[in-house]
Write a protein that binds this DNA or RNA. Structure first.
Length: 756
RNA sequence: AACGAGGUGGGGUAGUCUGGAUAUCCCGUCGGGCUCAUAACCCGGAGAUCGGUGGUUCAAAUCCAUCCCUCGUUACCA
């Protein structure tokens, strides 16, 4: 299938923090493997992605850091694009080394003015085609002390749930009872970012994309993809389509984003909603690549070069579009983005909402060919989390370890079908006992054995090869080659790399059987010797096979091996099928062979990761400083407004506002509707009993607690916890591991006594 | 608790959509071999009632039902 146009679309990393290994395994490594493979097969590959730089979280980060949003995204765009290059991802050069007609790559950013222009153009044409509808909605609007107002996204508003009266419900959904409602129904709304601000509800007009018009076309598309999509992609898409598609807002009251291409004051302070904008990056990025790179490099189609990768050609063939992303992103790429592409095609033909939606035909933008979405990579059993600092950051990892080690480990352990786990012992073991012991060792055996033989014009091995004697090995490798190719075509990276490794294993087997070391010095010309050394010579060919087939996975080592074999040129430009070209004249590198890899030492690594974890707390502001998560902790859930790092001193007055008192536990009951909660009745010295909900089930039996005199916070704002109002909080000590013990009173004292 | 994912030798995994004969591979373990090679390599053995139960079928790891358990998200929490 050479000469195909393949567009590799990589999910746009959000420029609000550095990338971690979870991101790499999920969406940044697989597309690079695929792109390298496709290039080697002779296909024309354009790879596109970039930093997603708009949206509210970035403005929040900017506020917290006291800088402007552009500075935030500049910083992370620089860090992340460098990290991806260091990982060997082929974002450079922008023009394919084989020539511009073969494509290239561009890691762009959404703050690019040209991206903005393209998004605005699409916005206008979709609107003119009648694919938007305008609706008036109610949104929260806060006014702070300086009298400056802004609209608040739902997730930045909290209040009391209209259905269960739970406090702390989010703007559009109550997590306690699961009810969803119009955000305006929320009672006592408070801004999470700015709790003192005055909040009111204002009418605001927005445009909605008529996704409903595309229901049928998308169902057809999904059914056509049944056989190629992975099960997770099928399931997620089906869920969306079964629910029935509804129109979806494409504009927001937002300051950091792309302004609407509309006249009139009523639209100021509104931007294109990020979901609508960021997916268009795949399209804008291809156009920008044409404009900035393909023209200068002399692509025959000039600024229309992008069409080769985007449009269905005259003879009806579509470019092959592959989208790489994590599982949380699936519906955006199988439902929403295809609906936008269909809409853009529709509008371009001058059709309107009343015309039926057609699938792409000649000249139209093509839909995806496959979306090989990944599950998640976990870290020591827990999820990667920025706020919990449970992560291994890509930049810091690459400072200390070989990029190919990471590429190997994440490939062989890729979360293709279910979540997989990253942990250091497993990492060390896989690198040492698979990559090094099997692959590295085999290559090193061949080279060092060869180096002991007298060297001829083309090295020591060229003269001792008898092709007829290695027929069976050639057939074996041809078989393996076909299996690797098949696996990669089906996006089964783990399996593909296993096949590559099996070639190295095969090499070790035949060397073992041939025992060439016995014949290094003997002078005889026995058949055994000829047979044996011929196998050794084949080891060179096998190593060359490994260099070519491992190139998509291990680009750096592949280059090193290529050189060690005395081969010249760029191994990434060598044709995939040349791995099984047995006619290639042998070459030799006369320098002493050096091992491809160095073994890892687990103890050293754990020691170094530990020290990094300790330092990291102190250097939180340095985004590339490493943070190694400790034990997994489900306790501290993410919060939007994380407390600032470091020590904050408390006024004495503030402390005294906390009213601590002594109470006696009278009764302990199970909470009817919560797993971890007890409902505790306390004698607080007053006539009435006090009810406190406590999450102590894991640590105490009810009978252990009854009768204890404990300290509780008496003036905590009462709040319903899953249906039972809790009037305060008992104090307990927590060692951060699994120990939790109540604070009790030494000796007798009246209930209700103040604690100070 | 709601939603999602998953349970396959000691650990990790493939196979499950599309039913088929001795259930894959890596690590570990036991025994043997080799000594070229980075405590590396090669051969062989032991070890799995494929979470439980019931059903469909000539045939179930695979399909259906039900139960149990684990993980994730959200909720909750000293």
């Amino acid at each position: 299938m050479a000469d195909e146009h393949v567009l590799i679309c990589v999910a746009w990393p959000y420029a609000n923090g550095p990338l971690h290994l979870g991101h790499v395994a999920g969406c940044y490594l697989p597309p690079d493997i695929q792109a390298r493979f496709e290039r080697a097969r002779g296909n024309r590959v354009l790879m596109v992605s970039g930093s997603d730089e708009h949206g509210t979280p970035i403005t929040v980060t900017a506020e917290q850091k006291g800088i402007n949003p552009q500075q935030v995204v500049d910083e992370y765009h620089a860090i992340n694009s460098k990290a991806l290059l260091d990982l060997g991802c082929s974002w450079e050069p922008n023009i394919d080394s084989r020539g511009v007609e073969y494509g290239g790559s561009l890691f762009n950013r959404t703050s690019d003015p040209m991206h903005k222009e393209i998004v605005q153009d699409n916005f206008t044409s979709l609107m003119n085609a009648g694919l938007f509808e305008r609706k008036t909605t109610q949104q929260y609007y806060e006014t702070n002390n300086e009298g400056i107002g802004r609209f608040l996204p739902d997730r930045y508003v909290e209040g009391i749930c209209p259905s269960c009266k739970e406090d702390g419900a989010r703007g559009d959904q109550c997590d306690a009872c699961g009810a969803t409602y119009e955000s305006t129904e929320l009672q006592n709304p408070v801004s999470k970012m700015n709790p003192q601000a005055k909040i009111e509800i204002r009418d605001t007009d927005h445009f909605f994309y008529r996704l409903d018009l595309f229901q049928q076309a998308l169902q057809q598309h999904a059914s056509e993809r049944q056989t190629v999509w992975k099960s997770n992609v099928r399931a997620m898409t089906k869920q969306w389509l079964d629910m029935g598609l509804r129109s979806r807002a494409v504009t927001r009251d937002l300051t950091w984003g792309i302004p609407l291409p509309l006249e009139g004051d009523e639209w100021s302070g509104k931007c294109v909603y990020v979901w609508f904008e960021a997916v268009q990056g795949y399209y804008s990025c291809a156009k920008i690549w044409s404009q900035r790179h393909a023209i200068d490099a002399g692509h025959p189609s000039g600024q229309d070069a992008w069409k080769k990768w985007w449009c269905v050609s005259k003879d009806g063939t579509s470019p092959r579009h592959l989208y790489f992303l994590g599982k949380d992103n699936i519906p955006f790429h199988t439902v929403i983005w295809p609906a936008l592409i269909l809409g853009i095609n529709h509008a371009a033909k001058g059709l309107t909402a009343s015309d039926s939606i057609e699938m792409p035909a000649n000249g139209d933008l093509a839909l995806e060919a496959n979306v090989p979405a990944m599950e998640y990579l976990m870290l020591s059993g827990g999820q990667f989390s920025k706020s919990r600092k449970h992560a291994v950051w890509l930049p810091s990892f690459l400072e200390r370890y070989n990029a190919d080690y990471l590429r190997y480990y994440l490939s062989i352990n890729m979360p293709e079908n279910h979540d997989t786990d990253f942990n250091w012992p497993d990492f060390v073991e896989k690198i040492n006992s698979e990559l090094i012991a099997a692959y590295g060792n085999f290559v090193h055996r061949v080279l060092t054995l060869g180096a002991r033989l007298p060297s001829g014009e083309r090295g020591p091995l060229a003269g001792i090869e008898v092709a007829e004697l290695t027929e069976v090995h050639r057939l074996k490798l041809e078989e393996i080659h076909a299996m690797i190719t098949d696996s990669l075509n089906r996006h089964r990276y783990k399996e593909a790399l296993r096949h590559v490794m099996s070639a190295a294993q095969y090499g070790n087997q035949i060397l073992q059987a041939a025992t060439p070391w016995k014949y290094l010095k003997t002078e005889d010309d026995s058949n055994e010797k000829i047979q044996s050394l011929s196998t050794l010579a084949f080891g060179w060919r096998l190593s060359r096979f490994l260099a070519i087939t491992s190139q998509p996975f291990l680009p750096f080592s592949s280059v090193k091996l290529w050189k060690a074999l005395g081969q010249t040129g760029d191994v990434s430009l060598v044709s995939w099928d040349d791995a099984i070209n047995w006619q290639v004249p042998m070459t030799w590198n006369e320098e002493d062979p050096t091992p491809l890899f160095e073994r890892l030492d687990l103890e050293v690594i754990l020691e170094s990761e530990k020290s990094l974890a300790t330092n990291a707390d102190a250097t939180e502001n340095n985004p590339i400083s490493a943070v190694k998560g400790g034990k997994k902790s489900k306790k501290d859930s993410e919060k939007m407004n994380e407390a600032p790092e470091g020590i904050t001193y408390l006024d004495f007055e503030t402390f005294m506002e906390v009213d601590l008192r002594v109470g006696k536990i009278m009764r302990v009951e199970d909470h009817p509707n919560a797993d971890r909660l007890y409902v505790v009745k306390i004698d607080d010295g007053s006539d009435a009993e006090r009810t406190i909900c406590a999450g102590l089930k894991k640590y105490y039996q009810p009978e252990e607690m009854v009768g204890k005199s404990v300290v509780f916070v008496a003036n905590l704002k009462p709040r319903p916890l899953r249906g039972v109002t809790s009037e305060g909080m008992m104090l307990a000590a927590d060692d951060g591991k699994d120990g939790v013990r109540l604070v009790t009173i030494d000796g007798d004292i009246a209930t209700g006594s103040q604690v100070r």
